[in-house]
């Protein structure tokens, strides 16, 4: 009796959520199986796996998948490694600690679009960018980052965007680290490095896992930075899956293939998630 009431009361929200999820998903699945090009309206016949075939055999597909994974892994590694090091560095009190912390966190408040524009125009521009100015003052040829190293440029921008998040999580975690444990280790003859290696890193295992999970969700779908800066090019050099799908849907007006791509992205996200949960999830139970 009681149980059915609770179920009844929960039903609206559960149904709401289901509908919320099911409708877009089933529409995507439906679109992915029909011919649906905005340039040829009315010709919406069932095509089976054809859209998937088109998407997978697209010349941009292999680069897009590998770029997505390279982007994801590079940014994860950079933000976690640099984040842990910077947080450990600013953990000890020093003059101006508050300001340094605010400065380190602030990139997180900048919109991805603005972030990409700043990097594109102020940092990486081969004529008046700061990097170009540095190379020139040192007597080197300025580098046109966006066209010479497009994927790396995107990685730099996205890392800059996400590093503050990692630092925020790690700094908070470090503040909860027990000082007596560190003192005990000191008495046991541990150097600063030993304490970092044997106490701080294990202490950060859980926050690292959290950062990896959350960043993965967002990094699989990086779009604004690519759209604003490299536009996926040159060629497919900085195109990731999200950008390729956008390309299919809006530049080539092929909603069917874009839907198939979307489903493939869902599949990839799940594979990556399972892999990452296996790899870092173990730490969550420590």
């Amino acid at each position: 009796m009681k149980r059915s009431i609770t179920r009844l009361l929960m039903a609206p929200s559960v149904i709401m959520l289901l509908v919320w999820m099911i409708i877009p998903l089933s529409m995507t699945i439906y679109f992915s199986t029909i011919r649906y090009n905005l340039l040829y309206p009315g010709q919406n016949n069932f095509v089976g796996w054809m859209n998937f075939e088109f998407f997978i055999t697209d010349p941009g597909f292999i680069p897009a998948v590998s770029n997505t994974l390279i982007l994801l892994l590079s940014v994860l590694i950079i933000t976690v490694v640099v984040g842990v090091m910077l947080s450990a560095l600013i953990d000890k009190p020093f003059f101006g600690q508050g300001i340094v912390r605010v400065l380190l966190i602030s990139p997180f408040f900048i919109m991805p679009t603005v972030n990409a524009l700043i990097w594109k125009n102020m940092m990486m521009n081969p004529v008046y960018g700061i990097f170009a100015w540095i190379s020139e003052s040192l007597g080197f040829e300025p580098i046109d980052w966006l066209s010479s190293y497009p994927l790396m440029s995107v990685i730099i921008m996205v890392s800059w965007q996400w590093l503050p998040f990692a630092i925020l999580v790690f700094v908070t975690a470090l503040q909860s680290q027990d000082t007596e444990q560190k003192e005990a280790a000191q008495m046991d003859g541990a150097t600063g490095w030993h304490i970092f290696r044997y106490l701080t890193i294990p202490h950060l295992a859980r926050p690292i896992a959290v950062v990896v999970m959350i960043e993965t969700i967002f990094l699989l779908a990086v779009f604004a930075e690519i759209f604003v800066s490299t536009g996926g090019g040159p060629g497919y050099d900085s195109t990731n899956l999200a950008y390729l799908i956008y390309n299919q849907a809006l530049l080539q007006y092929d909603v069917g293939v874009a839907s198939a791509g979307g489903l493939f992205a869902v599949l990839l996200a799940n594979i990556v998630a399972i892999f990452l949960i296996r790899a870092v999830g173990k730490n969550l139970t420590v």
Partner: peptide, 28 residues
């Protein structure tokens, strides 16, 4: 303090939480 050759027992015990008892004992 790491070079003084003293050992300290803390009020909160300050055991290393990620290590087993054996590893705690053998850390130094």
């Amino acid at each position: 303090s790491s070079k003084r050759d003293l050992a300290m027992v803390f009020q909160s015990y300050a055991l290393y939480p990620h290590m087993t008892v054996a590893d705690n004992l053998s850390f130094a």
